[in-house]
Amino acid sequence: MRAAALGWFVLRRLLHAVPLLFCVVVLNYALIASTPGDPVTVLVGDFPAPAEYKTQVRHDYGLDQPIPVQVARYVTRVLHGDLGYSFANRQPVLSLIAGRLAATLELTATALGFSSLLGIALGVLSARRPDGVLDRAVRGLATAGYALPEFWVGQMLILVFAIWLGWLPSQGAHAIRGVAPGWAGIADGVRHLILPALALSLRYLALIARITRGAMLEVLGADFILAARARGASERAVLIGHALRNAAAPVITVIGFNLGFILAGSALIETVFGWPGIGRLLFDSIGSRDYPTMMGILLVVSATVVAANLATDILHRMLDPRVG
C-alpha cells in the first residue's frame, strides 16, 4: 500500500519534472535567439570559423526556418546529447564538459560532505542548549557564513594560508609536474583540495547548521521526545536516535534544493583557485566568448538542478510520509 503510494508519487513528480526540463531547454534557445546580432555567432562562438561551417550550422539549426521549427530542432539536438561544438577548444561541448566533470564533482562533493557533517553536528550541539555559549557561536557563524561572498573567502584563504603562511598551494588540483603515484599523489591532491573546498563549504555549513538547529528545536519539544526522556533514554540516544532522525527530512531538503547554489559557488571558487572543473571552464568560455560551451554549461547545470530537486522530493517523501 505504502509502496504503491510512493510509486504514484514518483511518477507524478517525474511527469512534473519533464515539462520543466523542456522549458529549461526552450528558455536556453530563447536566450540564443534573442541575442543582439546573428544567432549563428552564438552557436559557433567568437572564433574565425570557416564560412562553410557557419552555413552548415545555420542549416542544421534551421535558422532560416520559422521559430517553432528552430525550437523543435534545437530541442531534438539537445535530447540527442548534441550540445554543439566548441571551436575554441576543438571539441564537442558535451565531451568538453564531461572531461571537467570529475574535478567539479571532487570539489563539490567534498564541500557538501564536509559542510553537511559539520553543519549537522554544530546544529545538534547548539540545539541541545539554546542560547548557550556554543549556540551563540554557531548562530554567529551561521549569520556570517551566509553573508560572506565565497569567492572573497577564497581570496582571503589564499592570502593567509598560501601567501603569508605558505602551508598550502593556492592554484590547481595537483602539483605542477603532474601526479606522483600512490599515497604521495593522493596526499598532494588533498593538499590542493583543502582551501577551495573550505571556501565553498562555508555558506552551506552556515545554512545546514541553521536548519538543523531549527528542526532539532522543533522536534525536541515534541511529545515522543518527552516520552523517550521519561523512559530514561540517555541524552545521546534522545539527540541522535530520536531527534536527529526526525530532523533529517528538512535538512536533506535544504541540501538538495541548494545544489544549484553549490554549483554556482563552484564556478566562482574554481575561478579563484584555478581548479580545472566546469566552473573554471565557464569562466574561460565567458572570457573567450565561447558561446556554445557557455550555453552547454547552463543547460547541464539547469538539468542537474531539476534532477536534484526531483531526487530531493522523492527522498523527502520517503523520509517523511506526511508529505503528500
Binding site: L27, I32, G260, A264, A267, L282, I286, M295, V301
Partner: peptide, 15 residues
Amino acid sequence: TLPRFVLALVTIALF
C-alpha cells in the same frame, strides 16, 4: 529551479 547566478552570467555575457 533555474540556477540564478549561472543564468545571470550567461545572459550578461550574451547581451
